[in-house]
C-alpha cells in the first residue's frame, strides 16, 4: 500500500491528511517505528491515531501523559484488594496471587499483550517527566516489559506507536532519533474546507467557504490561542444550529458565537466587531 492509498483510506474514515503526514504514517507502518507528531494545539494530532486505528481495523489504546505519571498508571499494577480477599477467603498461594488474574494492565502493558497489533497513542508525551520518557525509550525499542513477579512479557504483535507533543518541554534527542517525525500545522484553505465538508456534509457550500475564510483570517491575527480545527468545527455546528446562512447577514449572532473560536479574554478583546467586520468583509 502506498502512502497515497493510505491517504485515501484515511479520507474514507473521515480524516483529511496532507501528503507528508500520510507518508509519515505509511513509513511508521512499513518500518515499524514510532511516529512523533508535533504542532500547535487543535490541529488534529490525536485524531490521527483514532483514524489510523479505524483504517487498520484494530484497537486504539491511549495513554494520556501528565506530570507525575508513574509506572503503576502507565504499565501495570497488582490488584491488591482482590489479592487480599483471595488470601482471606481461600488462603491463596503466592503463585496464585501473582498471576494474570490479579494483574491490572495499564495502557503500555495492554498494548504489547494484544494478539492483533493495536495503535498505541501516547498523548502529550512532553507533559510526562523525563524519567518516564527514558523508560518509554526502552519499551519502544524492545517492546517488552518485565514484571518481577511474573517474568518478561514480550509483544506478540508490535503496536503502531503514535506520540504527540505540544512543546511543553523539550524532548530528549534520543527519543526524537528513535521516532519518525511529522510537524502538523494548521491546514491550508482547501484542506480545511475538505475537512469541514467531511465532518459537516449538510452545510451550505457558501457558508462553509465563509467559515473557513474567517477562521483562516483569525489565525493570521495576533492571538494568544489560535482557533484550531476542532474550534472551527464547533463554530460551524453553532452557526448551523442557529440557522445562519450568511455570515454577513446577522452580525450580532455571529459575534456572539465567537465564543466557540476565541477562548481567552485577551483574544476576545483582540477581535472586536470592527476586526471581524474586516475579516468577514473579505470572505463574504
Amino acid at each position: 500500500m502506498s502512502h497515497l492509498a493510505l491517504r485515501e483510506r484515511l479520507a474514507r474514515v473521515g480524516y483529511v491528511a496532507d501528503e507528508s503526514l500520510a507518508m509519515a504514517l505509511h513509513l511508521a507502518l512499513a518500518l515499524g517505528r514510532p511516529l512523533l507528531l508535533e504542532g500547535p494545539a487543535g490541529v488534529g494530532k490525536t485524531e490521527i491515531a483514532k483514524a489510523l486505528a479505524e483504517v487498520q481495523e484494530t484497537r486504539l489504546i491511549r495513554l494520556q501523559c501528565y506530570e507525575g505519571l508513574d509506572t503503576s498508571h502507565a504499565i501495570y499494577e497488582w490488584n491488591y484488594q482482590r489479592q487480599l480477599l483471595a488470601i482471606r477467603a481461600e488462603g491463596a498461594s503466592e503463585e496464585a496471587l501473582f498471576s494474570d488474574k490479579y494483574l491490572l494492565k495499564r495502557p503500555l502493558l495492554e498494548a504489547i499483550s494484544q494478539d492483533v497489533a493495536p495503535v498505541l497513542l501516547i498523548d502529550e508525551i512532553d507533559r510526562a517527566d523525563e524519567e518516564f520518557e527514558a523508560y518509554l525509550l526502552e519499551i519502544l525499542s524492545e517492546f517488552q516489559i518485565s514484571i518481577p513477579e511474573l517474568g518478561t512479557v514480550k509483544a506478540k504483535a508490535r503496536p503502531v506507536v503514535v506520540l504527540t507533543a505540544n512543546g511543553t518541554r523539550d524532548l530528549s534527542d534520543a527519543l526524537r532519533r528513535r521516532c519518525l517525525y511529522s510537524y502538523v500545522d494548521y491546514p491550508d484553505r482547501e484542506t480545511e474546507l475538505a475537512i469541514l465538508r467531511k465532518r459537516a456534509p449538510g452545510l451550505e457550500p457558501q457558508l462553509a467557504a465563509q467559515i473557513v475564510g474567517v477562521v483562516q483570517g483569525l489565525r493570521r491575527e495576533d492571538l494568544e490561542k489560535k482557533p484550531g480545527i476542532a474550534e472551527m468545527l464547533d463554530w460551524a455546528a453553532a452557526l448551523a444550529g442557529l440557522g445562519i446562512n450568511d455570515l454577513a447577514d446577522d452580525r450580532g449572532a455571529v459575534q456572539a458565537t465567537l465564543v466557540c473560536l476565541l477562548k481567552t479574554a485577551a483574544d476576545r478583546d483582540a477581535a472586536p466587531v470592527e476586526v471581524m467586520d474586516r475579516i468577514i468583509g473579505k470572505v463574504a
Binding site: 502506498s2 507518508m23 513509513l27 508535533e38 526524537r176 532519533r177 517525525y181
Partner: peptide, 28 residues
C-alpha cells in the same frame, strides 16, 4: 525507507526522508 515507497518519485522520496531524518520543527 526508500524501499518502502516509490523511490523513483522524487516527491515521495522527499516526504519519506523528511519524516525519517528530521527530528524537530526547526529541521522540518
Amino acid at each position: 525507507a526508500l524501499g518502502a515507497v516509490e523511490a523513483t518519485d522524487p516527491g515521495a522520496a522527499r516526504l519519506a526522508l523528511r519524516a525519517l531524518l528530521v527530528p524537530d520543527a526547526e529541521g522540518w
